[in-house]
C-alpha cells in the first residue's frame, strides 16, 4: 500500500517486446524438429526466445486498459527499446498524465514527472509497487528477464488443445536464481512458437497470476500477439490489458534518446 510510484518497467517492456518478437515466422521451422519430450530441446527453444528478444530495437504505440474494483483507466503510450538494456515509455493520454516518462538504462530506472518537472530514481523500496496503476509491478519490468538464465525448462505437453497444436513448458527457477516465482507454466503455439499464456505460481505452487497473449496477427512485418492480458489470481474480476496499436522493428533509435537529459526535453 505504501509505495506505489510509477517507474519504467523493464519486464513489462520485455514481455511486450518479447511477445512481439517471440517468434517471427521464419523461426517457426524450429518447432518442426522431432517431438521428444526433451529437456535439451526445451532449453534450445527457450534460448532462441531469449536471443530473439534481446537483439532488436523497436518503436511502438500502445494502449493499456486497467480494470479494478475501483476504477477503469485507459492510457495511450509510446515506447522505444534498444537492445536489452535500454527502454523508454511515455504517456500520451490522458491529458493529466501526458508526458510522464519511464526510463530504464542498464540497471537503473527513472521516472520523469512533468507536473513537478522532476526525475525520480527508482529505489528498492518501490520495486513492488504497481506500475501506472496497473497489475504489473515495477519489479516485473526491472528484473532480468532472460528466462534461460533463471529457469530450467521442461516440456510437459505437446499436442492439440482447444483446436490448436501447442507446446507446454514448465519453467522451474534454478536453485540460485533471484526470482520470486516457484514455477511458470508457459504455453506456446506449436506452429510458430508464439506464446499463448503464462501462469505464475508461488513457491507453494499456488497460482498468483495469469498472463494471456491474444489476438495474434501481423504487425510491423512480424506475426505477434497484439494483446496481453494480466489477471491476478486473487482478484479474477480485475485485469490489465495491453494492446499494440502500431509497432515498428529494427529502426534507428539513437542512444541519446535514453538519457536523463532527454527525459526533461520529451
Amino acid at each position: 500500500m505504501l509505495l506505489r510510484p510509477c517507474v519504467i518497467l523493464r519486464r513489462l517492456l520485455s514481455v511486450l517486446i518479447g511477445a512481439v518478437i517471440l517468434l517471427p515466422a521464419d523461426h517457426a521451422a524450429a518447432a518442426d524438429t522431432a517431438f521428444s519430450v526433451d529437456r535439451e530441446r526445451a532449453r534450445e527453444i527457450l534460448e532462441t526466445i531469449d536471443d530473439l528478444w534481446r537483439s532488436t530495437s523497436s518503436a511502438a504505440r500502445l494502449r493499456m486498459v486497467v480494470t479494478t474494483a475501483q476504477y477503469t483507466r485507459t492510457l495511450i503510450m509510446e515506447g522505444w527499446t534498444k537492445g536489452k538494456e535500454k527502454s523508454l515509455i511515455k504517456i500520451i493520454s490522458p491529458l493529466k498524465e501526458r508526458g510522464t516518462v519511464s526510463l530504464k538504462d542498464g540497471n537503473t530506472m527513472y521516472t520523469y514527472l512533468p507536473k513537478t518537472d522532476r526525475v525520480i530514481r527508482l529505489t528498492s523500496g518501490m520495486m513492488m509497487g504497481s506500475w501506472m496503476g496497473s497489475h504489473f509491478t515495477n519489479d516485473d519490468l526491472v528484473k532480468e528477464s532472460r528466462l534461460a538464465d533463471d529457469y530450467e525448462p521442461a516440456l510437459t505437453f505437446e499436442g492439440p488443445r482447444g483446436g490448436e497444436e501447442v507446446i507446454e513448458f514448465e519453467l522451474l527457477p534454478k536453485a540460485d536464481a533471484p526470482v520470486v516465482w516457484g514455477r511458470i507454466d508457459m504455453v506456446v503455439r506449436a506452429a510458430d512458437l508464439l506464446p499463448l499464456s503464462a501462469r505464475y505460481y508461488d513457491e507453494d505452487m499456488v497460482l498468483a497470476r495469469t498472463l494471456d497473449f491474444q489476438d495474434i496477427r501481423e504487425m510491423g512485418g512480424r506475426l505477434l500477439p497484439a494483446r496481453l492480458r494480466m489477471v491476478p489470481a486473487d482478484k479474477p474480476a480485475e485485469s490489465t490489458e495491453m494492446t499494440y496499436l502500431e509497432i515498428e522493428f529494427d529502426i534507428d533509435v539513437p542512444d541519446s534518446l535514453f538519457s536523463l537529459m532527454q527525459l526533461r526535453r520529451m
Binding site: R73, R118, I120, G133
Partner: peptide, 16 residues
C-alpha cells in the same frame, strides 16, 4: 519536496 503516490483513479499522483 515532491510527493508521488497512486491516486484513487489509478493515475500517478505527483505534486510539489
Amino acid at each position: 519536496i515532491v510527493l508521488i503516490g497512486q491516486a484513487a483513479d489509478g493515475s500517478v499522483a505527483n505534486d510539489l
